[in-house]
């Protein structure tokens, strides 16, 4: 434990990693709340895995994989949003198809790229120790964008996630609001990929908000609590992984799961 704090004081890459944990927690707590209350975990998983297509293509074209991830995330969010709104009866199958096909496209482009790039593996499973200053700037920018839009469209998001029929009657464009919400979730996934990788991203997005929702009935409070829990989970997982040299992403997800089960127990205890 003390080794971790010494390393955090001495090494820049450790400081960047901790900053990445905290920056990821902001978007994660805010957008994870919408994923949990709207019950769209599967849909979120579909977006996360399809992002590999964008990263693979960006690698093949010698571009930035994160830019590829952002473009793929936004395109997938819009397409999956349309599937949800227009082909509701086949939603399950279509999202599963997107999920697998996105990964398949990503793998094909990786295999077509000469040499084996270890960076891409870090995006699959996360490698927080490789976060650069430019990555941190991008993460901060995404946080500012996501949180500002949630603040601006707070009442539209609340109305459309709570009661679509009534929101429509009150003149809210529920479809456009829903697509915007999915785009913000997609950008948050890109934020989290830096920390835990796209395979594990779903758990980090959902579990802190799922813990928080058990202790409040106010969405802003759930968001604040989810941000605090995300910060605790990501930095705690990172810290625990350091001594025994375990993968940080996987350690963070295990901590998140343990915290979630503790929260279920505490919520039951409080209720009784």
């Amino acid at each position: 434990m003390i080794e971790f704090f010494i390393a955090l004081k001495d090494y820049q890459f450790m400081q960047y990693a901790m900053a990445a944990c905290l920056l990821a927690s902001l978007g994660c707590g805010v957008m994870g709340t919408y994923v949990v209350i709207k019950r769209i975990s599967f849909l979120t998983g579909g977006i996360a895995h399809t992002i590999l297509a964008g990263m693979g293509i960006a690698y093949f074209l010698n571009g930035s994989p994160l830019v590829g991830a952002i473009i793929a995330a936004l395109i997938t969010a819009v397409l999956i949003g349309f599937i949800k709104l227009r082909w509701r009866q086949d939603e399950d199958i279509l999202i599963a198809a997107f999920w697998s096909c996105g990964m398949a496209i990503g793998i094909i482009f990786i295999s077509l790229t000469p040499g084996y790039n270890t960076d891409l593996m870090s995006y699959l499973f996360g490698n927080i120790l490789l976060v650069s200053f430019d990555d941190l700037l991008l993460m901060a920018g995404l946080d500012v964008l996501v949180i500002s839009l949630v603040f601006i469209f707070y009442r539209q998001f609340l109305a459309a996630t709570f009661d679509e029929e009534f929101a429509r009657l009150r003149g809210i464009n529920v479809e456009a609001t829903y697509i915007l919400l999915l785009c913000l979730i997609a950008l948050t996934i890109v934020l989290l990929i830096q920390v835990v990788g796209l395979i594990l991203v779903m758990a980090l997005l959902i579990l802190p908000a799922a813990c928080a929702i058990q202790f409040s009935s106010s969405i802003p409070r759930i968001m604040a609590l989810a941000v605090a829990l995300s910060a605790l989970i990501t930095s705690g997982g990172f810290m625990l992984s350091y001594g025994p040299d375990l993968p940080a992403g996987a350690s963070i997800i295990i901590v998140a799961t343990v915290v979630y089960f503790i929260s279920i127990f505490l919520a039951r205890f409080r209720h009784d």
């Binding site: 209350i37 009442r155 709570f162 009534f166 009935s217 106010s218």
Partner: peptide
Amino acid sequence: SFPRDFPIKVEDVVLLGCQN
């Protein structure tokens, strides 16, 4: 037409009626 376990308080539901 909303889930009864949605985390929202009574006054916030009524506030949503003020959308116009």
